[in-house]
C-alpha cells in the first residue's frame, strides 16, 4: 500500500509532490502539537474546572467531580471581594515600569557585551554571571534592612528601582542573540558615520524584535506573578498587587473558598495569556533576510 503510494508520488510533477509532502507533514505536526498541548494544559484545565465548581469541597473529591451546575458567579464574587480593579492597577504600575526600565537597561548592557572589543568586558561579564549564582533568597534580609534605612518600606520603590540595572538573564540572553547577528551591517553603518546608539536603535533592534517580544513576555510574567517581593515590601492594602490580594483572600476566611480562589487565579493569568498571544506577532521571519541579502 505504502509502496504504491510512493510510486504514484514519484510519477507526479515535482510541485505536486512537494505540496502533498507539505500537507502530510502539516497533518502529522498538527496532530503531534495537538496531543502535546492537550497533555500540557492539564494543570491549567484543572484550575479552570475548579473555578466553576458550585462548592469548594467538591475540588477535593476522589475521583474528581464534574462541576454541576457550572457556577460562573464565582468569578464575579472573587472579582469584587478582592477589589480586583485596584489590585490590577497597582500590579500594572509595577509591571510596566519594571518592563520598560528593565528591558531598556538590559538591551543597552547586552549591546556593550556583544559588540565592544575592550578587554575588561570579560571581567564584567564574569561578575554578571556570578550575580546569578548566589541563591537570591540569602540577600532578602540585608535588602530589607537597607530599604528600611532609606525609608522605602511600604512603597513600590523596592519593587521597581532595582530594574535600573537590567536583569542578568535578559542581558545574557540578548547578548547571545546579538552575537548571532552578522556584524557586516553595523560595521558598514559605522563607516558611514552612524553612532553607536544609532546602530543599536536603527540597525540591530529591528532585527531583534522576536527576542524583545520574548523579554516582554518574561518580564511581564515575572513581575505580574511576583509574590515574595510585594509580600515583604508592601504594607498598605491600597498598594497590594494581585498576587498579594489573592493570597490574603486565601487566608481571610476560616474555610478557604477554593472555588473562588481558583476563579481568581484564572482571572490572574488572563493578562499574561493576552500578552503572550499578542507578542507572537513579532515571531515572523524575513526581517533579517531582507536586511542582509545583496
Amino acid at each position: 500500500m505504502l509502496k504504491t503510494e510512493n510510486k504514484q508520488k514519484r510519477a507526479l510533477p515535482l510541485v505536486r509532490t512537494k505540496k502533498t509532502r507539505k500537507l502530510i507533514g502539516d497533518i502529522v505536526c498538527f496532530a503531534v502539537a495537538l496531543i502535546l498541548s492537550c497533555i500540557l494544559i492539564i494543570p491549567f484545565l484543572w484550575m479552570l474546572i475548579c473555578s466553576v465548581q458550585p462548592e469548594s469541597s467538591l475540588i477535593f473529591m476522589n475521583p474528581p467531580v464534574w462541576p454541576d451546575p457550572i457556577r460562573l458567579v464565582n468569578y464575579k464574587e472573587v472579582f469584587f471581594e478582592i477589589e480586583m480593579p485596584l489590585l490590577f492597577k497597582n500590579t500594572m504600575i509595577i509591571v510596566v515600569s519594571n518592563m520598560v526600565i528593565g528591558i531598556a537597561a538590559s538591551i543597552s548592557v547586552a549591546y556593550a557585551f556583544a559588540r565592544n572589543r575592550t578587554r575588561e568586558k570579560n571581567i564584567f561579564f564574569s561578575v554578571l554571571l556570578a550575580t546569578m549564582m548566589l541563591p537570591w533568597v540569602v540577600t532578602l534580609v540585608p535588602q530589607y534592612i537597607i530599604y528600611n534605612k532609606i525609608n522605602w518600606l511600604g512603597t513600590m520603590l523596592p519593587l521597581i528601582a532595582p530594574s535600573i540595572g537590567g536583569s542578568a538573564f535578559f542581558i545574557f540572553m540578548f547578548r547571545q542573540f546579538l552575537m548571532a547577528i552578522p556584524k557586516d551591517l553595523d560595521e558598514a553603518a559605522l563607516i558611514d558615520g552612524c553612532g553607536r546608539l544609532g546602530i543599536l536603535i536603527r540597525i540591530l533592534l529591528p532585527q531583534c524584535m522576536p527576542i524583545i517580544a520574548t523579554m516582554i513576555i518574561f518580564s511581564f510574567n515575572g513581575s505580574w506573578s511576583d509574590y515574595v517581593g510585594p509580600s515583604i515590601y508592601l504594607t498598605d492594602p491600597d498598594q497590594y498587587t494581585l498576587s498579594i490580594g489573592l493570597s490574603k483572600y486565601l487566608v481571610a476566611n476560616s474555610v478557604t473558598p477554593w472555588h473562588r480562589v481558583m476563579a481568581g487565579c484564572v482571572l490572574f493569568s488572563l493578562p499574561m495569556i493576552v500578552v503572550i498571544f499578542t507578542c507572537q506577532k513579532a515571531f515572523t521571519r524575513g526581517i533579517v533576510a531582507s536586511g542582509l541579502k545583496v
Binding site: L40, S243, L250, S269
Partner: peptide, 11 residues
C-alpha cells in the same frame, strides 16, 4: 504549551 508556567503561586 506556555500555560502551565502561568499558574499563579496561590493556585
Amino acid at each position: 504549551i506556555y500555560l502551565p508556567a502561568m499558574i499563579p503561586i496561590v493556585g
